[in-house]
Design a protein around this nucleic acid. Structure first.
Length: 192
DNA sequence: ACGATGATGAAC
DNA sequence: TTCATCATCGTA
C-alpha cells in the first residue's frame, strides 16, 4: 500500500488530472494495445480504489493475459455471452465476474473494440490471489462494465516505477488446465 | 486433497 | 428446467 488518505473535494479538483493518488491516471489509450503488452506494463502500476471516501493505492504484482477468441482459456473463446460481453467492447473497462460460487475476479479490457481480450489482476502488493484482491478492494458486479476512471471509484495510476525486464517472470496461467495447448502459454506475469 | 457455494451457459 | 463447469481459497 502506497498511501491512505481522505481526498478533500477542493484538493481533488485543484490537482486534476493527477487527483486522488500521486500518480498519473492511466487513460484508455494505455489499454488499447495488445493484451500481452498491457499485462506486462501493468506490473509496477497502481490499482487505486476509492471506497467510503477513502483512497488506497496498491502496486500490481501479478497479472494474466487472456487473448481473444482463439485463446481457449479466454471466456471469449466460447463466443459472446451475457457474462463476457464487456470484453467485446472498448478497452479500459472492467470485466468483473463471479466464480466458484463465492469469488469475484477483476479484469481490465484491452485492445481494439470488438477484439475480446483482458488482463486479470491476480495480485497486488500484500495481496496474493485474484479473489483476495477483489475481497480486499470491495470489488463486485457493480464495477462490471465501468470505465477505469476516477468517477468509477477504481482506476489505475502510473507511479513512475518501471519494473526491469530481468525481474519479471513469465509462467503458464493458473487454473486453466482445460485449455489444452493454450494452458501452457506463458501469459502470467509476476515480479519479486 | 477436498469441499464450499452459486452464477452461467449449454443441453435437453 | 436441469446440469456440468468453474481465470479460487481455506482447511486438513
Amino acid at each position: 500500500m502506497r498511501f491512505v488518505k481522505k481526498p478533500s473535494p477542493a484538493n481533488v479538483k485543484a490537482r486534476h488530472p493527477l487527483p486522488e493518488g500521486e500518480g498519473r491516471l492511466l487513460e484508455r489509450y494505455f489499454f488499447e494495445r495488445p493484451v500481452l503488452k498491457v499485462a506486462r506494463d501493468l506490473l509496477g502500476k497502481y490499482l487505486v480504489r476509492r471506497y467510503r471516501g477513502k483512497v488506497t493505492a496498491y502496486m500490481i504484482t501479478e497479472v494474466e493475459a487472456y487473448d481473444g477468441p482463439k485463446d481457449k482459456a479466454c471466456h471469449a473463446s466460447r463466443g459472446r455471452t451475457e457474462r463476457n460481453k464487456v470484453m467485446f467492447g472498448e478497452a479500459g473497462h472492467f470485466y468483473v465476474y463471479f466464480v466458484y460460487g463465492m469469488h469475484w475476479m477483476l479484469n481490465i479490457v484491452t485492445g481494439k473494440p470488438g477484439y475480446p481480450a483482458a488482463v486479470l489482476i491476480r495480485g497486488v502488493e500484500g495481496v496474493n490471489g485474484p479473489a483476495r484482491v477483489c475481497k480486499k478492494l470491495h470489488i463486485n458486479k457493480k464495477l462490471n462494465g465501468k470505465l477505469a476512471a476516477h468517477k468509477s471509484g477504481l482506476w489505475f495510476e502510473d507511479g513512475g516505477i518501471k519494473i526491469p525486464a530481468e525481474k519479471i517472470k513469465r509462467t503458464p496461467r493458473i487454473g486453466v488446465a482445460y485449455a489444452k495447448e493454450w494452458a501452457m502459454k506463458p501469459y502470467r506475469f509476476v515480479f519479486d
